[in-house]
Design a protein around this nucleic acid. Structure first.
Lengths: 151, 151
DNA sequence: TGTGGGGCTTGCCATCATGGGAAGGTCAAG
DNA sequence: CTTGACCTTCCCATGATGGCAAGCCCCACA
């Protein structure tokens, strides 16, 4: 199986397959006499695992751990669960950070006329945080931030 | 004012101040005879604007636009609002993607014993999506995904 | 058997924002 | 005058991915 076929079958681009090989995430592929890489169905199986883990946002280093556990038939599921839970924590942290940004911006957008005039609370807040937004808007902002944390 | 003082006063690291200069985001700083960069309070004001915009997740290219509008006293607030709204859209898309990852992972984690035994629905799902999770768990997954979209 | 088009190889560059470090010049306090 | 902290430039690294270029390989069709 050529690298292109393996790419199509696994959903991992040929470029990334080579990259994963150089970084040691996957073993070096067999070569045919032509120099072409040759992939088995088992290799594709591996690549699909990687693809799926990437889709869940795992970093390559974490996938390396997961692959190790996958291959280890005497693994403890607790180890897998720990990795997954840590990743969920990181996702949650990033989500919270972005929700805070979004919430701030939505408040500012709600205060901006969005017309031909130059007055703009968005720019005013960038210039001096908190001054441009009226107190009631700030209250809404705080409430929304709390709601986001609950959601 | 030295670059280090400007960094402390603005919250932008000296490294990043130099970087912003090379990329044209800020004008080239004045130099003293020694070659040291020299910053005015107005420069620090600029840098704080940039810092705040970065904190809201704007990319440097977007900040360039925002700075242009900030300086343009005949700007239309609609232009600022458009940029901010586009950024909110992008934040929302990224948040949704990560919430989906998190939701999937939380479902799998909820199905994993997390003990000494090797059986692990997390690995099983990475190996073959959807097979390891019982139908009721998949239903919970869908509901949670919908709830996330509402949140 | 020749040929053309598509696939493969390696290698280098770019992204985006940020940090690290080295080699060497400057400043200010003691 | 020395010393330590600060500044300068330049280069390198990150992480995952794509793009491009020069050159080789393979297969199908004429």
């Amino acid at each position: 199986m050529n690298i292109g076929e393996a790419a199509k079958a696994s959903g991992v681009s040929a470029k990334m397959i080579r990259y994963y090989e150089t970084t040691g995430l996957i073993p070096k592929a067999e070569r045919r006499t032509s120099g072409y890489r040759d992939y088995s169905p088992a290799d594709v199986h591996n690549l699909r695992f990687i693809r799926r883990a990437r889709d869940m946002g795992f970093a390559v280093a974490e996938i390396q751990e997961l692959l190790g556990l996958w291959r280890d038939r005497s693994r403890h599921s607790a180890d897998v669960k720990r990795i997954a839970a840590a990743h969920v924590e990181e996702l949650s942290a990033r989500i919270a950070a972005m929700e805070e940004m979004r919430s701030t911006l939505q408040t500012l957008i709600g205060c901006c006329a969005g017309d031909d005039r130059p007055d703009c609370p968005i720019l005013a807040d960038l210039e001096e945080p908190g001054v441009a937004v009226r107190p009631d808007a700030q209250a809404r902002l705080r409430e929304r931030a709390i709601a986001n944390r609950r959601g």
